[in-house]
Each structure stands twice: as C-alpha cells, then as structure tokens.
Write a protein that binds this DNA or RNA. Structure first.
Lengths: 339, 339
DNA sequence: CTGAAAGCGCTAACAC
DNA sequence: GTGTTAGCGCTTTCAG
C-alpha cells in the first residue's frame, strides 16, 4: 500500500523526476517535448517514466495550465446514423491526429437536449465545440457567445453562425433536385420525409424543393412527413401512405437515400415500374444504393469531407490561425435512372 | 478585463460564494446537492450562480476530489457502423443518465490502435472503459490490469475478461445457423465475409459455422473473405467472386445482414432464385431487411440492449455494487424465407 | 539548459 | 448547518 488514499495510478511526475535525478519541471518539459533539456536528460526521464509505468495526468495538466482542456465536444442528432456516423469518424480521426479528444453527445434533434448537453460539456472547459443542431435555443446562443468558446456549426450551412459554420447548402440542394425533376417532365410530385416531431436534417432541402416547384407555378401534390426516424422502413411505408392518398403522383422526392430506397421497394412490391410509373429521387449518396439494379437519382455529398473540414477549421481557429467563418461543403446532383 | 489571464469563464465558486454571502464550501455543497445547507442558503447560492453565469469547472473538481473523473472511455471499431452506432447510442444514453461523459475512440479492428487510444484515455483518469476490440495486445491487458480501472469488454463474450464482459456468443450463433442451414438440406455451403486484414466482428461466427459443418462431416465448399469493410457492396461483389469460383454452391452464410442483402441483390441481378437456386443467411437483424420482398433468415440481436447492459454493469462496478463478471446478451435465430 | 516557488478551482477532512 | 485548512499534480512564471 504505497499509494495515498486508494489512487489507482500512484506514479506521478515528481516520482519520475526523482528517479531520473532531475526536477519536476525538467521532467515535465521532457514529457511534453517542449524545448529546454539535453539529450541525456531526455533519455533518463523517458527511461524512468517507462520503467515506473508513468501515466500523465491530463486532468491535472488541464487544470494546472491554462483555461481549456484538449477536449472537443461533438454533438450530433444520433450516434447511430449512416450520415452522421461518417461525420463522427472523420472528425474524431482529424481531432485525434491533432491531439484532441472527442467528447460526444446525441441531441435527437431537440434544441433543449442540446442546451443541456452544452452546459454539461462546458464544465469540462473544452477547447472547442462542433454542433450539428438544426436550431439552437436562445439560451444556447447567448451562453456560447458569452463564454467565447470556439464553435463550429456543421451540417447546415449557416451564414450568420455563432462562431463558424461548415455545411451543405441544403436549400440549394433541394431546389436543384426540384428543378431537375421538373425538367424531366414530372408535374404531380410528392415529398416523403420523417421526424415530423423534431424537424432537423431535411427541412431545408424540402423548402428548397418546394420553392423550385413554386417557381414553376406548381404546387407540391402531396406530402407525407412521418413521425418516425428516417430509414428504409420509414421510406417504405411513407410511400404506401402517400400513394394511398394520391394515386396520381408521378414522382416523389425523399428526405434521404435510405427513404428513397424504401420507396423503390414499396413500388416494386406493388408491381409499379420506376421510373415509368413513378420517379424517385433521394439525397446523400448512401452506400446501399450501390447494389440496386437501377442507379438512384440523388445528391452526392461527402459527410466525411464535411467532418474533416470542420475539425481542421475549428482547430485552426483555436490555435489562432486565420480561418473563414463560413465554408460550404459542395454537393452534386447525380442523375441516375430512377427519375 | 476583470479576468486574470484571458480566462473564458471567469466566474468561479469563490465568487458565487462571496456574492451569496457564504463560504466556498457551502456553495460547493449546494451546487453538488449534497446535504449540509438550509433551504435559504440553497436559494441564495443558486440565484447568484445563475445571475453570474457560473459554469462549474469539472476539471478542477475531478482533480481536487478523488482519483478519477466521471469520464468513461468507449472504443468501437468504427463510429460509422450500423451495428456499433446503436451500441454507442445506448451506452451514451445510459451513461449520460448516470452522470458520466463518453469519450470516444475508433480502433478500426487494430489492437495496436486500441492500445494507443487506451494509453491516451487513461491520462484522463476515466472512471471506466468500455472496449469492443476483438483482441487486445499483451501490453493492453497488462496495462489495464495494473492500472485497475474498471473495464467492460463488449461485443464478444469473453469468459476470462480483463475485468468484466458483456457480449453475444458469436461462436454459438454461427454454429446454430450452420446447423439450421444443414437441417434445410443444403450441402454445398459457402461463407462470405470482409475485413480480412483486420479480422474482428465475424471471426467467431465463422468458426462456429465451420464447426457445425464439420460436425456433420462436411467441409465448407468455398470461402470469400474480402479486404474491404463489411457492407452492402462488399456482399454484392463478394457473392460475385465466390460464385465465379464455385457455381455449384447451394447456400451462403454471410458475415452480417448488410452483406447478405448485397448477396441477395447480386443473385437477383443474375436471375437466380433465392432460395430456389441458392439459400442466403445473415446475422444482425439490420433495419434494411425490413423492406425486402422476402424475409431474410438471420440471427436477431439487440445491440441496443448490449450497450445499455454494459454501461449499467460498468457503472454498478464503479460504484462498488455487486455485478456479474460475465453477461451473455441473447441472440435468436429467426427463420425467414431466404434459406 | 535547469530549478524553486506559486497557484490553478475545487473538495475531503475536520472543526465549530 | 457552516467554515477553515490543506492539498490534489501539474505548469507557469521567474531566477539562475
């Protein structure tokens, strides 16, 4: 029982320093690899640290040094989402390479939940935050501005961000697809989405889509916005619902590819021909589309690029380098043969 | 410029205490809601804290109090995985409700990457770890045992865990499916998997499957283990590859449902009838299967239950409550009509 | 290149 | 129910 209390890792810098015959300060410099020690000293300290099984205490370091930790808070709607999964992977990878840790949160498209999480995460004195909330509460905006922590809002492009924004232009993307569908001669066009209770991801695309139709002087024939989470099955029965109401639809725009694929399957199950009887378009370039017999008409996006760009921009800002406040991540409409 | 240095949140407990006319200690007790203050005091302190915009400093708290923080490190192969996404969502949810924060890591099925991440995370003095690595390095095992941090190994059931294990019995699950396929009269059975370079998720299921066949005195007719990540497309062209080598296969067992669905699509594209010409079985009860015209024969698992169980068991152990070292999360073979 | 002193904000332990 | 004292393990000065 050499440890005081019941500490788990009882080796600290002082012991390493003593074993190496130097002061704590010198040992600290070696461990952090900042200048100010000889090669001899370096070797001694590293050898002793390794021999003693020294594990640095980042909590103490974050506390004893400045005002922030090397923690980055990252918040997404769901951790189990094919779109945001790739964002998480790419931000986490980029952040880890730059020496930061990801602390995660899932807000489920609720600005309230996001606010609670932000209050919580701020108590860890994070170096920065990456937020993907569709909207924020007034409190959240005020809190973050007052606090001054660097914040990257991602996913939705936000031209007047709290701090900085990296995102897709969802409105334009929806509008572009609306125009494309119209250009193919479709006129009785429906929309199928999800998460009616907590609108998030698709709202702006839908608005852009509707505005394209309105520009051509036509109305959206029918809309079906389910209460469930977006997914294959939601697309399947959302299509069943919308077609039950309006048999004359000639095309449907879906919130995302998973829903569009669900729609294709519903139509096939009913013996309908895509795009002969009905045209279908999605958003997001989901991997699942690669195995369909037809190529899905969709908007291709790189969630991976989004995450990486956001992480790197945030860290640049944290380090005081010059960065743009607003970055658009490109999207590209790729015609297939489902519309 | 009231702040020393350039601290971002310059309000600390001492200032709240002073404003409320009490000592730091009393304010601390109120903030943490531990006993030892009057209702009057409570109101005063909370009012001042809110008025001043006080954000507690958890770094200082973790440092000043005990030996561990309320951080839980959670490591999965990929953050963008339909199977592990649900695990992350459920662990994160359970941990957040119990007052813990998730610090994330992606090891990409590399025990080396996992080791680096563990060293890193230990420096945050986490209260516990949740690991889903298929294997660990010797160093990792020694480090964790020496350190004494509570560890829940998840996903694979491990009967001699570092500390505790919550998982599926993949071997039995694969064996059960092997027996089922045999019971349906199939004899020229193949296996299609992925991630050959970094075997992880499916290895034990494959072994169980092979052992079932061996028990019946037959050999696996053909195996195709790709180097790519498991997914729809990997299943699609894995099937193309295996059928190119062996046209006489009458059934294929896939690493997971996404791959099995890819296989179904390949067969359909070739005009093959499932299960007439070839039987197909998967693992994991993926949501995408719900929209198929046929019901996929698969093993149903609850990754959500796994995550929740693991998180709660880990916290119970951290709190010193009695918990089993090993917990099996049930799986269930659900016959469909693809085999 | 190296070291000594001070202190970060909080909480455990102990008084009162 | 409340306050006082000490100290967590590191890093930031500032001296040499």
């Amino acid at each position: 029982m050499t440890a005081k209390h019941d500490k788990r890792s009882n080796v600290n810098l002082a012991e390493v320093a003593e074993a190496a015959g130097v002061s704590k300060m010198t040992a600290s410099r070696v461990m952090r690899n900042v200048s100010g020690f000889s090669e001899d000293t370096r070797e001694k300290v590293l050898r002793e640290a390794s021999r003693l099984g020294y594990v640095p205490n980042r909590i103490a370091a974050a506390f004893g040094s400045e005002q922030t930790s090397s923690i980055i808070g990252v918040s997404v709607p769901y951790l189990s989402s094919n779109l945001f999964g790739a964002v998480l992977d790419s931000t986490n990878d980029a952040l880890a390479k730059l020496g930061y840790q990801t602390m995660i949160g899932a807000h489920e498209n609720s600005a309230q939940t996001e606010e609670v999480w932000i209050r919580n995460i701020l108590s860890w004195r994070p170096a920065g935050l990456i937020l993907s909330g569709h909207t924020h509460t007034k409190n959240t905006r005020e809190l973050l501005k007052a606090h001054g922590v660097p914040v990257a809002e991602i996913w939705n492009l936000n031209t007047s961000p709290i701090d900085m924004s990296v995102g897709f232009n969802h409105f334009d993307s929806g509008q572009e697809m609306g125009l494309y569908i119209l250009s193919k001669g479709y006129r009785r066009i429906g929309y199928v989405g999800a998460e009616a209770a907590a609108p998030g991801l698709g709202t702006l695309r839908r608005k852009g889509f509707l505005s394209a139709l309105a520009g051509a002087g036509i109305q959206c024939a029918s809309e079906e916005i389910l209460n469930d989470r977006a997914g294959f099955y939601a697309g399947f029965y959302g299509t069943e619902n919308i077609l039950a109401r309006d048999q004359n639809l000639d095309a449907i725009y879906y919130q995302d590819d998973a829903m569009a694929i669900g729609g294709i399957f519903y139509c096939q199950a009913q013996g309908m021909n895509v795009p002969g009887d009905i045209g279908i378009a999605g958003w997001g370039s989901m991997e699942a589309a690669s195995i369909l017999p037809q190529r899905l008409t969709t908007t291709v996006v790189s969630t991976q690029a989004l995450g990486k760009t956001a992480a790197e921009a945030l860290i640049a800002r944290i380090r005081g380098e010059a960065v743009e406040d607003v970055t658009i991540t490109p999207t590209r409409l790729v015609p297939g043969n489902t519309i």
